[in-house]
């Protein structure tokens, strides 16, 4: 499934209406329909890297949607290997460009646009944090590579032998890489099999999304991230005294 073209995937998600989505430099922008209703689409494909210019392009699309298509849900597709380690982009404020994109999405949320993410390919690092993880609800295709980094990479950086991490990941899904363990942490609402009816799933996702951030609660319920919710609540309780 990983080899399917971006166009083929868009077709599966949006049917004939996918023609309203432009693909330029592996960036997706445009409008399509889900269950007969308009949606705005922003995203990445081909595992591209995100830099200042691409963050701005996506932000421009979000602003346009807010101005011209009030309350239209925004679907964010994520297939990006991360931010490109690039000195010029860093110098000009890559973090600020990402922060701006997040600000635009926040404005959309406040103005009544539902935000739905589908991790379709690579959904890692800064590229996932700078828009996809900011949705109201986040979904992932079964085949998507979701998470911080694969165990081999984690081992290379931390100098902890890969077999040790591998073994620990059996009881700590946070260390494992992929859509399913990420869902155990609450980071993904639901993992979608590529073979199913994605249009129906997406329509349901849009219809049921709420703005509350339910990830910590999900992570506790699913057992993959047992501490986050309790610690947060403890801060809230102690600070209320």
């Amino acid at each position: 499934m990983k080899t399917q073209s971006p166009r083929a995937l868009l077709g599966k998600l949006f049917g004939a209406s996918a023609k309203g989505i432009a693909i330029e430099n592996s960036l997706l922008t445009g409008y399509a329909k889900v269950g007969g209703k308009d949606v705005c689409v922003i995203g990445t494909c081909n595992g591209t890297y995100i830099g200042n210019a691409s963050a701005l392009r996506l932000a421009a699309q979000v602003i346009e949607c807010i101005e011209r298509r009030p309350r239209t849900p925004i679907v964010m597709l994520v297939d990006s290997a991360g931010q490109e380690p690039n000195r010029a982009d860093e110098m000009l404020g890559l973090a600020s460009y990402f922060g701006h994109l997040l600000g635009c999405l926040e404005l959309a949320r406040r103005k009544g646009h539902r935000l739905i993410t589908i991790a379709t390919g690579k959904a890692v690092g800064g590229a996932f944090l700078c828009y996809g993880m900011f949705a109201d609800r986040i979904y992932a295709l079964e085949s998507a590579s979701v998470g911080l980094m694969p165990i081999a990479a984690m081992s290379a950086v931390t100098k902890i032998p890969a077999p040790v991490l591998q073994k620990l990941s059996k009881t700590m899904p946070s260390l494992e890489f992929g859509a399913k363990p990420f869902a155990l942490l609450g980071g993904v609402e639901e993992v979608w099999p590529a073979s199913g009816d994605l249009q129906a799933r997406l329509a349901k996702a849009i219809a049921t999304a709420t703005v509350d951030d339910n990830r910590a609660a999900l992570g506790k319920k699913r057992g993959g991230r047992k501490l986050a919710l309790d610690i947060r609540n403890r801060v809230l309780a102690q600070s209320a005294k």
Partner: peptide, 26 residues
């Protein structure tokens, strides 16, 4: 940034904190 030894849990926590920051800003 994210504490690599704790994998994706730290990454999600940062995303959650971003949401909380924007709650303040709203």
């Amino acid at each position: 940034g994210v504490r690599l030894h704790e994998g994706s849990a730290g990454e999600i926590a940062i995303a959650e904190t971003m949401r909380a920051i924007f709650e303040c800003r709203a």
